[in-house]
Design a protein around this nucleic acid. Structure first.
Lengths: 213, 213
DNA sequence: CCATGTGAAGGTATTCACAGCC
DNA sequence: GGCTGTGAATACCTTCACATGG
């Protein structure tokens, strides 16, 4: 093993591997080869080995990788062992769905607070989380929450982000379809759902052809 | 202009530019320089010019790009001028949010049908779309719908995809957190929300440090 | 003069092929 | 024999620098 910097593309794939390892562990397996994991997650086996080689020797030649120790290491690299609590801002249709979404738990992440500006929503409890008044967002500072998900209308995204930064948030998952400006120490990942759908037609088989491209 | 193949990374950015152009047009502009668009969407100006250079000369030196003709060309490349109608499979929390989501319209995309297996949901109308019985999915063939969004539990994703492929669907946006197997002529984009959140902690400033990484 | 368009340079990630080890 | 780990080769994408044209 060398002290390589881990490429961003590898970081992007680590959560994929992690989920694959978890599911495999649930099936009762204790170790897995790069080939089986490849079939399971849809990444080439040599790509998987290369990715893992950036951060250590976890495999046993002739056998494969120990699932538990590899999963633990990936969690450590992604810092999922330290960061676990997230806040949701904007409890509309999408926000409500995110509150109910069971998928975050796999990665050890948990939405423990929610904020909205609508008085009709404030005070209501959904999935064990009571919706708070957005004007009280500064209280996050004392609550060990450094991760935020924002699901507000596009025009409200920048103001919301500014308040979150002031409240000490360090990372933001933004569902609003726009660029937001932040101090560079803060990380924002923008996930524009419509945009993903929009690039799908490009890859679809052209009309007029009868068979594959 | 050369007859370059358009790189995948450029295709990924085209919807970003398209949205930027639309918003700029709404502000009353008729043309825009690569520099202004860069500020607006968060991509370098030289990257933007390079991207546009793959598919033609749309700019006027000293002035910028004509918004309308550029937008039209991008839509044509992405084939958003032909593919407009989509079906939703799975009307749970996330599916309902997607039905209500206003963002698809920007790209000319429209969810015109929805399916679910739950008898309590079948027959109800949400946002102008009546939820149909999933066993009737084959009727899609006669309805000029080639794009599907699936928002079903992980274990149901593969069966749902198989039925969609049989019903003639050509492109799928998959929200279920798993790989799905399909004939290679069909394009699937999997969007795992939790996974995006999971790679955020890696990029956040490390605790203990006072300033940037 | 200003902003586009593009070869060339530089950087990053993927793929290959095989040596090393269980 | 089977599977990992990795340098080398390749492909791809980004950045630069500047010629080109309205």
């Amino acid at each position: 093993m060398r002290y390589h910097k881990i490429p961003d593309e590898t970081i992007r794939r680590l959560p994929v591997y992690l989920r694959g390892l978890m599911v495999s562990a649930n099936h009762g397996h204790r170790s897995i080869s790069s080939g089986s994991l490849a079939d399971f997650v849809g990444v080439n086996s040599w790509q998987i080995r290369k990715d893992f080689s950036y951060f250590g020797d976890f495999g046993t030649r002739g056998v494969g990788y120990n699932i538990e120790s590899l999963a633990k290491e990936i969690k450590k690299i992604l810092r999922l062992d330290v960061i676990r609590r997230a806040v949701l801002v904007g409890v509309g249709d999408l926000g409500s769905a995110l509150l109910a979404y069971p998928g975050f738990g796999v990665y050890g992440l948990d939405i423990v607070a929610a904020f909205d500006v609508d008085p009709k929503k404030i005070g209501r409890t959904m999935n064990g989380v009571t919706i708070e008044d957005f004007t009280r967002i500064a209280t996050l500072k004392e609550r060990d929450i450094s991760l935020a998900i924002i699901a507000v209308p596009r025009t409200e995204a920048q103001p919301a982000v500014d308040r979150l930064v002031a409240a000490g948030i360090k990372g933001i998952l933004n569902f609003a379809p726009c660029k937001v400006s932040i101090p560079k120490r803060i990380k924002v990942i923008t996930l524009d759902i419509a945009m993903e759908l929009a690039r799908l037609p490009y890859y679809m088989p052209r009309a007029g052809r009868t068979e594959e491209p």
